Simulated scan of single mutants.
Amino acid sequence: MFYQGVLTKMKSEFASPIQYYLVFENDFINMNQLLNKTITMEFVKYQCLNCGEDKPIYRQGFDKQCFFEVPQAADWVMRPELSKAHLGIEDRDLEFEKNAQLQPHIVYLANSSNVKVGVTRKSQVPTRWIDQGAHEAIEIIEVPNRYLAGITEVALKEQVSDKTNWRKMLKHDIEDEDLQEWRQRLKDFIPHEVIDYFIEYNTETNLQFPVSQYPEKPKSLNIVKAQTYTGKLVGVKGQYLIFEDETVFNVRANEGIVVKISF
C-alpha cells in the first residue's frame, strides 16, 4: 500500500499517547498505526504551498519568491513583537494580519529539551506544545493580541531560553521541572503593560508521545539528497519521525516536498 502527497506539518490529537496524522490532499495516514512497521519514503518533487509550482523550497514550504511575498511568512510570524495589526499598519496583507494577530495569544513555558518560553495563539494550545515535543507546559499570560505576547517573550527570553535543542528532545534526555515555580520566578520580568494578564493559578499540562525507542545519536534524514529511505518506525515526537536505525525525519522542516510513502 502507498500514499503520495505534499508534506505539511503533521496534525495531532491530544490523547495518551498523542495521535499523529499525516494529511495529504485526498488521504491521511494515522502514523501511530505504522509504529514498529517498515516504511519506505521516496522524494517525488517539490510543490510550493502557495503557488503549487515544482520549484526548490526555500523556507516554511514556500519557494523563494513566495516566501518573500506571502503574509504567512512575514517577519512577525517568527518575531511576534513586530506585529502591527493592532495599529492598523499593514505588513503584507492587513486583513490576514488582523485575523492572525488580533486574537487571544498565550505566552507559555514548555519543557522539551529544557525550559523555554514561547508564544502561540490560544487556539493552538496544546498543539504548539505537541509540535515542540514538550513533555510538560504551562501558560504564563493570555493577552488579546500578538504584539503584547511578543514583547512579553522578548522580555522573558533574557531570563530563560526561547530555543529547543532538537537532539536532546529526541534522545529524551530531559528532566521534570516545577513550571509553576518557574512562572512565579519570571513574573517580575513581565512588561508593566502586560502584567494584568498574568495567569496566577493553573496546572501544567503533561504530554505523552508514541515512542517505543529513543535514539542515542539521532541523525537527520535529507530525503531530497537521499531520494529514498527505508526504515522501521519506532516513534513520533514533536514533528519528527523516529526510526530504529536512529534516523530521524523532521516533517515540518520538509513542508512543500511531495513524497511517496509505502508500507
Rank of each mutant, 00 (worst) to 15 (best):
K163G: 11
Q213N: 09
N32K: 04
W129Q: 03
I199H: 10
R92L: 02
K232F: 10
I140C: 03
E81C: 02
L22W: 07
S161E: 03
K187Y: 11
R167P: 08
V258C: 06
Q227R: 13
E13F: 09
R183T: 01
P126R: 11
T164N: 10
H192T: 15
I261Q: 08
L241Y: 05
N26D: 13
F96S: 08
G256Y: 02
N165D: 15
A74C: 12
G52M: 09
K237C: 05
V211M: 02
D245Q: 07
V154G: 02
S262M: 13
D245E: 12
E246Q: 14
T8D: 14
I190H: 05
G5V: 04
Q19S: 12
Y108I: 03
V251S: 02
S12R: 04
S123H: 13
I195R: 09
L102R: 05
F43E: 04
R128F: 05
G61P: 00
L156Y: 05
L221E: 03
F28E: 15
L233I: 06
V224M: 08
I261D: 07
L7C: 06
D196L: 09
R121P: 04
N50M: 10
S112Q: 07
W166M: 04
I18W: 03
V125G: 04
T205S: 09
G118M: 02
D131L: 07
A100Q: 10
N99S: 12
D63S: 07
M1W: 14
V236Q: 03
E200K: 15
L22A: 04
H135N: 13
V258Q: 11
N202Y: 10
W166S: 03
V119N: 01
I223K: 06
I89W: 08
I151N: 00
N26G: 08
N250R: 06
K237I: 09
K37E: 13
R146I: 01
V125L: 12
K116D: 02
G5W: 00
Q103S: 11
K9T: 15
L49E: 01
V125M: 12
N50T: 12
M78L: 14
F198G: 05
I89M: 11
Q184S: 14
E139V: 12
H192R: 10
L35G: 09
P210M: 01
T8H: 12
V125R: 08
K98R: 14
N50W: 14
G235L: 00
A100R: 02
R167C: 06
K168G: 02
